[in-house]
Structure formats: C-alpha cells, structure tokens
C-alpha cells in the first residue's frame, strides 16, 4: 500500500448525494493521494458515476440532485461559496463514457478548452494542441489531418481525442467515467497504456466495470455497493485479499 501523502489531493467527508427522494451515495469518506490512480468498481447503479460527477460539480446540471457533506480539493471545499465552478472544472477535467468530440475539426476540439480559457495566440495554441495530442498518444495518427472533422476518427481515436481535449487545459485531476467501455480490446489497451503514462503527472479517478482493467491500471481500488463505499485499499490487496466478504464475491464474479 502506498504511503498516504501529507495532504490528500482530494478528500471526501461525509458525502451523501440524493436524486429527489432516492439516495445515490451514502455517507462517503475517502481520501485520494496526489498522482494516484483510484479505480471505482461496483455493480451498475451503485453510485460510483454519481460520486465521480460530484468531484467537478457536474451533478449541478441535474436539477433534482442534492448533496450533503464536503469535497476538498487541496484542502479547499469545492462547494464553498465563492468557488468558481468554471475554475474548478479547469482543475478537475473529465472524460466521459461515450466519446463526445464536438462536431468541429480535430484541432478545434483540443483547442476549445484553451480558447474558452482566453488563449488566442495562434502559435501558442498550435504548440499546446500538439503537446496534448502527443500526450494522449494520438499525434502520429492525426498530425496530417488536424483540419478534418473529429467525427471522422474511429471510436478509439475519438476517445483519445477527448482525453487530449481534457489534458489540454492542464488539469490536476482527471476523472474518467468508463472511458473504454465502448471500445474494442486494441483501443482499450491503448487507453490503459496511456493511463500508466498520465499517472506521472495527474491524479486520476476512473470508474470501470472491467475488473482486469481496474487491476491493471489502478494503485487504489474502491468498491461501491448500493451507494455505500464498502471497502477501499491498495488494488493488489482488494483483488487478492479483500477484507470484506461482499468485495470478494464481487471481484471473483459471484455477483455483479
């Protein structure tokens, strides 16, 4: 188990999230260290995506969602009054389950976050776009067709483009909601390989339904069940020697 950092990058205290009368996340306490990959696993509807989306306040877009408790980023409550949600989302980027490039050119997709952040210098933009695409291991495949539509890329390329787009604004934390669930094994392998490299610079929280994927890419694994965090620990330990019977049943495929 990795040593916990002096101060966790993200700290979740007594977090509960409700949709109307339904409770999606119950009394969650969790700390995520800097430059760590945390995998969230658990059966469908267990609240892991809801939890993920509260880390950059995306749940605010759902009118019925309500939230208690605290989420601290570098010790600061992200839901506190005076915290700019736009600024927060620049620091905490997100990659979605279904790749969702804009119907714009490949270049403009990656440049979008930079443009809305106020960067308009052409040379600087080109530089940052190239760096992000390199970083997402997509540059060699698209460098000659940056002006083409992003929708002309294959599914795996689109998802890596979305990762490049998220990385372009240089976030500190990257949230990934089942980023490889709609991809073929080859593209999945590329994305997983990518995550290994991203770990050096970013804190990553990834939701996945794929046990092997969680085992391959993450340092820590958290098991959710019915909106509750059942167990969290080093990935190796969760998969080989879990402390809770239900975790063992899930990771060995007895239910899911």
């Amino acid at each position: 188990m990795s040593e916990p950092a002096a101060r966790p990058k993200l700290e979740i205290r007594d977090l509960s999230i409700h949709y109307g009368t339904k409770t999606a996340v119950k009394n969650l306490n969790l700390a995520i260290a800097e430059r760590e990959v945390l995998a969230l696993i658990g059966p469908s509807g267990c609240g892991k995506s809801t939890f993920l989306r509260c880390l950059n306040r995306m749940n605010e877009l759902i009118p019925a969602a309500r939230q208690d408790g605290h989420v601290l980023l570098d010790g600061q409550d992200i839901n506190a009054r005076g915290v700019d949600v736009v600024e927060l989302r620049r620091r905490v980027g997100m990659v979605f389950q279904k790749s969702n490039p804009f119907p714009k050119s490949i270049f403009e997709n990656v440049a979008y976050g930079l443009r809305v952040a106020g960067l308009n210098d052409k040379a600087e933009l080109a530089l940052r776009v190239e760096a992000s695409l390199q970083h997402a291991a997509l540059w060699d495949e698209v460098k000659d067709r940056l002006g083409e539509s992003a929708l002309s890329l294959s599914g795996g390329q689109q998802q890596r483009l979305c990762i490049a787009r998220a990385l372009a604004v240089e976030p500190e934390v990257v949230l990934m909601d089942e980023p490889a669930s709609a991809l073929d094994p080859l593209s999945t392998a590329k994305i997983e390989e990518l995550m290994h490299e991203l770990k050096a610079r970013y804190t990553i929280v990834i939701v996945t339904h794929n046990m092997q994927q969680a085992a391959r890419v993450s340092d820590q694994t958290a098991f959710f069940y019915m909106g509750e965090l059942i167990e969290v620990g080093a990935t190796a330990q969760i998969f080989t020697n879990p402390g809770v019977k239900r975790t063992e049943d899930y990771v060995t495929g007895k239910f899911g």
């Binding site: 995306m58 877009l61 600024e87 979605f96 969702n100 490039p101 804009f102 809305v116 787009r165 604004v169």
Partner: peptide
C-alpha cells in the same frame, strides 16, 4: 443537440 456536447464543454471549464 446532444447533451453530451454540453457536458463536454462545461467539463472543460466553459461557461
């Protein structure tokens, strides 16, 4: 227009 476009844009720090 798909909601996923809006979410992607907001998640990138757009207003």
């Amino acid at each position: 227009v798909p909601r996923s476009y809006r979410e992607a844009s907001l998640a990138l720090g757009a207003t």
